[in-house]
């Protein structure tokens, strides 16, 4: 299968060593309390992988994802993204990486309000220095591929949750990044819509070789991924090949294409 081949290219996209993250909080007695959330995380994710990160609420999944997405910085340890040491990068360089190399999909969609789906999808291109009319053309093309062409001029509050998430995914894809990070992308969606979104991710991974790291606490969502990582209290307690994915993919092969929904 094509998906297995992608996982075998063994080219590290993400490499994390001894990564720790702690927050300092002001305690009730006025003293500073240090709350460590991630403990010595070591993790390598190769290009073309489809990874699900699971764990209970509060186990540090989002914290890890935000660091992977260059939205947050670790307290200690190193993070190499596509061979670059992220800690050594300037703010502008990080912005450039978020723009070009990473597509972030949030649980709450995080679309810009009062802006059409089309403009939401096109905005990363503007920050990449591409003119508005060309940006819109490409955004429309992506919306077509995610089946939202007829909703291009709708604003987020005029779209359903599933549609909003697809707009968000289109936005994450527009600069053709090698990496998609999705933090509970189906957390606000019903089962049927979740399935469609997951098939979309699966297809992106399989057909375009896009690396996908996805956080979920639902087993049937994690089942789409080919590798499963389990976090508990800031430690990786499990990291294995996901057998469940093969079953799911067999079902998908039965003819459910998310692109035609």
């Amino acid at each position: 299968m094509a998906s297995i081949q992608a996982a075998h290219t063994a080219n590290p996209l993400i490499q994390i060593e001894d990564l720790c993250k702690s927050y300092s909080l002001q305690g009730a007695d006025g003293k500073t309390i240090t709350n460590q959330v991630l403990f010595s995380i070591n993790l390598t994710i190769n290009q073309g992988e489809f990874v699900a990160i699971m764990g209970h609420s509060g186990s540090g999944k989002s914290t890890l994802m935000n660091i992977l997405g260059c939205l947050d910085t670790p307290t200690s340890g190193s993070y190499w993204l596509a061979g670059k040491n992220v800690a050594a990068l300037s703010g502008d360089e990080l912005a450039h990486i978020r723009n070009q190399s990473i597509g972030f999909v949030f649980q709450g969609f995080n679309l810009l309000k009062r802006m059409t789906a089309l403009d939401n999808v096109a905005t990363p291109l503007l920050y990449a220095g591409i003119g508005r009319s060309q940006s819109r053309k490409r955004a429309l093309e992506l919306l077509r591929r995610t089946g939202l062409e007829s909703f291009a001029m709708h604003q987020p509050n005029q779209l359903s949750g599933g549609q909003q998430q697809r707009v968000a995914i289109s936005r994450a894809l527009i600069n053709e990044p090698p990496l998609i990070l999705a933090d509970e992308p189906t957390g606000n969606l019903d089962t049927q819509t979740s399935r469609e979104i997951m098939l979309l991710f699966e297809q992106l991974n399989r057909d375009q070789g896009i690396t996908i790291v996805l956080v979920t606490h639902e087993d049937d969502i994690a089942a789409y991924a080919k590798r499963l990582i389990r976090l508990k209290d800031g430690h990786i307690i499990l990291d294995q090949h996901n057998k469940a994915s093969e079953t799911i993919l067999d079902q998908a092969a039965a003819g459910n294409s998310p692109m035609t929904q």
Partner: peptide
């Protein structure tokens, strides 16, 4: 925050 997440720099 959203704009920064999708690649806007400070300037």
């Amino acid at each position: 925050g959203i704009r920064m997440a999708i690649g806007a720099n400070r300037r």
